[in-house]
């Protein structure tokens, strides 16, 4: 009886957690909000790039999942995937998808938060070193009279970059 209850409870848990990575549709991209389960497992997941706030794209799979995280494809078992709780709420997802745009798409005076770089190269490295790192607020001060380059404010100072470079930076608008 006790055993059945335990079993029941575990199944309940599995059922309740609709926001686990297992339930994400193929091709959908989500943000990890929480890791649960054993500490050891969580740490392992974090090491693989499945840390809180990380963006994960589920590529395919029903039991064992193929995901893209931090630019690399990773296969994880269902047992682990169910411990990864993500933001899959449709409105949220749509919103967060909509809110991520390129820095070059911001209009004059618009503020945003640096989200990520669309590729990894020397230019991005230079931008990061200049302080354009994920999570930093950024503001487009103005476009040059000919429309390019762009002047932005980051970490309290002014930086100008060409559109080419601004197109490498994803930002999140509020």
């Amino acid at each position: 009886m006790f055993g059945w209850f335990k079993k029941r409870k575990r199944r309940d848990e599995e059922l309740i957690e609709t926001d686990s990575l297992c339930n994400v549709a193929d091709g959908q991209s989500v943000v990890i909000k929480h890791l649960k389960g054993k500490d050891h497992d969580c740490q392992r997941l974090r090491e693989m790039g499945f840390c809180e706030q990380a963006r994960v794209e589920k590529i395919s799979g029903k039991g064992t999942l193929i995901c893209r995280v931090c630019d690399s494809k990773v296969v994880i078992s269902q047992g682990l995937a169910k411990n990864i709780l993500v933001n899959t709420c449709p409105e949220n997802e749509e919103n967060s998808m909509k809110n991520i745009i390129l820095l070059s798409e911001l209009s004059q005076g618009q503020k945003a938060i640096v989200h990520d770089f669309i590729e990894e190269n020397d230019t991005c490295a230079r931008l990061e070193e200049m302080g354009v790192t994920p999570g930093e607020p950024v503001e487009v001060i103005r476009y040059a009279p000919l429309g390019d380059p762009i002047e932005i404010r980051i970490r309290g100072y002014m930086l100008s970059l060409r559109k080419e470079e601004a197109e490498l930076i994803q930002v999140e608008i509020k």
Binding site: T123, R126, Y157, M158, E164
Partner: peptide, 11 residues
């Protein structure tokens, strides 16, 4: 050389 134009606009 990929052209990089990242320039500080000092006060």
């Amino acid at each position: 050389q990929k052209p990089i134009f990242i320039m500080e606009l000092p006060p």
